[in-house]
Simulated assay, not measured.
Amino acid sequence: MPQPKKKTYQVIIDQIKEYFLTEQLQPGDKLPTERELASRFNVSRTSVREALRKLEMKGIIEIKQGSGSFMKTSEFQLLGDELSTTIVHAENKLVYEMLELRRALEVECAFLASQRATSEDLEHIRQAIEKMKAAENDVELGLEADLHFHLSIVRASHNSIFLQLVQTLSEHMQDTIRATRRQRLANPERLQDTIDEHKQMYLAIVAGEGELAKQLMEKHITQIRKELAESLLN
Rank of each mutant, 00 (worst) to 15 (best):
S170D: 07
L151H: 14
I129V: 14
K72T: 13
H148Q: 15
A128L: 12
L151Y: 13
I13T: 07
G80L: 10
M132T: 05
K93H: 08
L169K: 09
P27A: 11
N234G: 04
E97Q: 10
I63T: 03
M173Q: 04
I16V: 14
S152M: 11
A90E: 08
L78D: 10
A179F: 05
A204D: 01
D81E: 14
R45W: 03
K199S: 08
T33E: 04
I125E: 11
F149A: 07
N159H: 03
T33V: 01
L99N: 10
Q215T: 11
L151W: 10
A186E: 07
E50C: 01
L94F: 03
E218N: 13
E34Q: 14
K7P: 05
I61S: 01
G66N: 05
E91M: 04
I177H: 07
Y19A: 06
L122H: 15
E50L: 08
F76H: 12
K6I: 03
A51P: 08
L78C: 10
L52A: 01
T85A: 11
P32F: 09
Q164N: 12
A117F: 13
G28V: 14
H150R: 08
K17T: 12
T118S: 15
C109R: 00
R53V: 03
I16L: 09
V166I: 14
E130T: 13
D81L: 13
S47W: 06
L228V: 00
M201V: 10
T33F: 00
R49C: 02
A90F: 05
Q115I: 01
L143S: 05
E130K: 15
T8W: 03
K64T: 13
D196F: 04
T46G: 12
Y202N: 05
Q215L: 13
K64H: 11
K93Q: 08
S114P: 12
L165E: 09
H150P: 09
L37A: 08
P2C: 02
G80M: 11
T176I: 06
H89Q: 13
Q215G: 12
D175G: 00
S170R: 11
K7A: 15
D196R: 04
I12N: 12
L169D: 03
E56T: 08
L101V: 05
L147N: 03
N187F: 00
E123P: 03
S160W: 02
H148R: 15
T180A: 02
E75L: 07
N187C: 04
I153S: 04
E18C: 09
E171L: 10
L165N: 01
P2S: 10
N159V: 06
L147T: 09
Q115Y: 10
S231M: 03
D29H: 14
V206P: 06
V154I: 15
S119G: 06
Q174T: 10
Q223I: 00
T73E: 13
H150V: 04
E120M: 14
Q167W: 02
S114M: 11
E91H: 07
I224F: 05
A229I: 06
L233C: 00
R103D: 10
A38C: 13
K214N: 00
A135V: 07
E209R: 15
R103H: 12
L169C: 06
L233V: 03
E62G: 07
